[in-house]
Design a protein around this nucleic acid. Structure first.
Lengths: 201, 201
DNA sequence: TAAAAATGTAAGTAAGTGCTAACATAACAA
DNA sequence: TTGTTATGTTAGCACTTACTTACATTTTTA
């Protein structure tokens, strides 16, 4: 089937571009990994560059995290942040090939890379910022820039993801995921709640 | 002079590897940028790969940030964190070519890339963690893992650096450096200090 | 089943790319 | 000055890579 072939090539392209970079991945190898003849690749995508572009477009549209926000209202602030951190890390992990390509090729394809980044981060930053704004309105959180707060929070986890989950081998992890999430959320919670006079301890 | 030539080639290699990646940077172009004949490059470094390795070694030994710790004791906690964040960002910026190479080629040269990362992050994590430990001992900070705390703190800024200062154009910055440092430090300070009963506001 | 569309095979082209060989020239130390 | 060392110039080799051409074969569609 035509669709199957296209998808198989796109998938193989995603993995090989992520592993070896745009220049390091050869059309021959991509075709081989997709289980088709190299010529078939060119019949579908004309050039390697167009294959790359189509692949980026195909995989940068993500299922959104919109279902997240409503559920948060029933949780405590701390639970909510842990939930968001978990979803964010999960999403990064699902899209780790794209993330890697984005980081590698950002200079070669700035607009495309930025689009991926926008898809990956922009929405969750907005969601988180609006959540902060709401809690600030209710007097639960102190005043701070919701956008910068969201970036600070996600930045901690993005950085953790980069150095740990994306890093090559398992043995270099400095801590397990749960305790990292716990500590990071703990710091952030205490860093943003509004302190009342009768604070215990 | 022989040393001049070597250094010129190493410098050109650093810049071009960073811009175009290991495969994208050609020996011809590196030699041209260094202002020498391509053959001279090979006479000094034998192969492209050895040039890459020597370049990584040459630039991964950094002047340390050890002078930082003593000065911190005369500052408030908040001032100290702002100082550390500033130094860290400055250092990342000075080494931005290396940082970029490290992120790009981590799969091709895992051990070298990890070494660069270690040089870049390891020491400052330790310094910061020991600073936290000291303040915990004095009862200024609450109990939390000093190492994870240090990684959380630096992670926020590393992530900011990645998306802003390393990003291609200026117009995509979402905020100026000073306000980012201010907000991030503010969150982190309130997230880690020990709260006493007589807290104002 | 027959026409049409998709894919495979094989051979090859043009343009790089890392790297070498041969020889000439310039700088420097004795 | 003379011999040595570092560098330049030019040509080229062996190999890879994106991409093409021509034709055969399979799969899908009508």
């Amino acid at each position: 089937m035509a669709k199957d072939t296209r998808e198989k090539i796109l998938e193989a392209g995603l993995r090989l571009f992520s592993e070896k970079g745009y220049l390091g991945a050869t059309t021959k190898e991509i075709a081989q990994k997709a289980g088709v003849a190299e010529l078939t690749l060119f019949r579908h995508f004309t050039t390697k560059e167009k294959l790359f572009e189509e692949m980026m477009s195909a995989y940068s549209f993500l299922p959104a995290l919109k279902g997240l926000l409503p559920g948060l209202k029933e949780m405590s602030y701390e639970e909510a942040l842990a939930e968001i951190a978990g979803s964010f890390l999960k999403r990064l992990n699902e899209r780790r090939h794209l993330v890697r390509i984005m980081q590698r090729e950002i200079h070669l394809y700035p607009s495309k890379a930025r689009q991926v980044y926008q898809n990956l981060m922009g929405e969750i930053v907005k969601t988180l910022a609006s959540y902060f704004r709401e809690l600030q309105g209710k007097g639960v959180l102190r005043e701070f820039s919701p956008e910068l707060g969201a970036r600070a929070f996600l930045g901690m986890f993005f950085s953790y993801f980069n150095t740990q989950e994306l890093a090559v081998s398992e043995k270099y992890r400095f801590a397990d995921r749960a305790s990292v999430v716990g500590e990071f959320v703990g710091i952030f919670v205490k860093g943003t709640v509004l302190i009342k006079r009768k604070q215990e301890i």
